[in-house]
Design a protein around this nucleic acid. Structure first.
Length: 384
DNA sequence: TAAACGTGGAC
DNA sequence: TGTCCAAGTTT
């Protein structure tokens, strides 16, 4: 078959019961009927019959990577209002984009977003390429996102496989092999179900199904358009699928953050290195974060403080934050400095902290310092 | 290939 | 409080 020959994907392992074309077509038709009736109204979703804007599809798909719809909505609205086209985004300043992205997480996405917008502008004449391969070559666009844009924005047949699709396929066909080993099988099943027509709607329908009915916990099987065909439901396995390999334990790292406030109230911020954790984002100065007992504040101050000061104060309590692969416990240390101190970084007035690309962990530190911290000059104030 | 890479909400 | 999880990509 032409489409099988064209596919670069691994074919299904021999023992996988891939549905025959007639059964697959019936399943997709039933799903599309459900989708046409119960389709969610999402900001980046076009009305039926309207052409999708590739820029909006791309922007939403990147934001939705490992991120919930609820979290994305306000960010998507702000980005679209501020940068209505890919050309507008390409001309944006890096810091502006990082600031708008602050709080959404996985900040490499924001860096890649800008690089990609500039590539589309400079190398593709301001239009997104239409083929999966060309899309896949753009920064921050992987297999899933390339397929999603090709299908949703350009109506091309592409096999769109995200976490929803994997979960739905695992249940529909009762695949008990744990992830990630099951990925080739699940992809082959998704491929078998993908129709030639309305490919973008089909992809969004499977994802909607996974997001609204075939949810990770307590799936609403009674409402599912595929309940009669679902082998996982029949076997009483649906809720437990897909099986997943156990995750490694999360270690706890510890460190110290410095809240240094100038006489006029401005606070010292720095920019983090461009790559790695929170790459390119702003931070409060601090020690390294290491998997070791909490450092003694005096030692941390002498080793890591961005300037030599006398009157450091440890803020009572601390800040705990959890990243994907480790917990972080921070002690916050405060000091007041003179009018014109010398330090690497920028001095930001308190009321303008929101204008900088501070990731959530440092917003927690800011809140902790402001609510629990006491600076030496505060002690004179009778109302504290 | 496996690890790195954020955050907030649900349970 | 702790764990799981979400429309993945990169190295």
């Amino acid at each position: 078959m032409a489409r099988a020959a064209k596919s670069r994907r691994p074919t299904a392992p021999a023992e996988v019961p891939v549905p025959d074309p007639a059964a697959a077509a019936a399943l997709s038709a039933r799903l599309l009927a459900w989708y046409d009736r119960d389709r969610r109204d999402l900001p980046w979703r076009m009305d039926p019959g309207q052409a999708a804007d590739p820029y909006r599809v791309w922007l939403s798909e990147v934001m939705l990577q490992q991120t919930t719809v609820a979290a994305v909505k306000p960010y998507y609205a702000r980005f679209l209002a501020r940068w209505p086209t890919v050309g507008d985004l390409a001309r944006a300043e890096d810091a502006a984009v990082m600031t708008e992205w602050a709080g959404l997480g996985y900040y490499a996405r924001a860096r890649n977003l800008l690089t990609c917008a500039r590539a589309v502008t400079d190398q593709h004449g301001g239009r997104f390429p239409e083929t999966e391969d060309a899309l896949r070559a753009l920064p921050g666009v992987g297999a899933y996102t390339a397929a999603a844009i090709a299908a949703i924005a350009f109506g091309r047949r592409a096999v769109v496989v995200d976490g929803n699709v994997e979960r739905v396929m695992a249940r529909l066909f009762a695949i008990e092999t744990p992830l990630p080993a099951a990925k080739p099988t699940l992809r082959a099943l998704a491929e078998a179900l993908t129709p030639d027509a309305r490919c973008g709607d089909h992809a969004q329908a499977v994802m909607d199904l996974g997001a609204t009915l075939c949810t990770p916990r307590s799936p609403a099987c009674g409402l599912c358009p595929w309940r009669e065909a679902c082998q996982g439901l029949r076997a009483g396995l649906a809720e437990r699928l897909p099986a997943k390999a156990p995750k490694p334990e999360r270690p706890t790292r510890r460190g110290v953050a410095f809240w240094i406030q100038r006489r006029d109230g401005a606070v010292l911020l720095r920019q983090r290195p461009a790559r790695g954790l929170l790459g390119g984002m702003m931070e409060l100065p601090g020690s390294d974060w290491v998997e070791a007992p909490m450092p003694d504040p005096a030692v941390a101050i002498s080793e890591s403080a961005p300037m030599a000061l006398d009157d450091w104060r440890v803020v009572p309590g601390g800040v705990r934050h959890t990243f994907t692969h480790f917990h972080l416990d921070l002690i916050v240390v405060m000091a007041r400095v003179g009018a014109n101190p010398r330090a690497r970084g920028i001095w930001v007035p308190l009321e303008r902290l929101g204008e900088h690309a501070l990731p959530t962990v440092f917003r927690k530190v800011v809140r902790h310092a402001l609510t629990k911290g006491v600076l030496e000059s505060d002690e004179d104030r009778p109302d504290r």
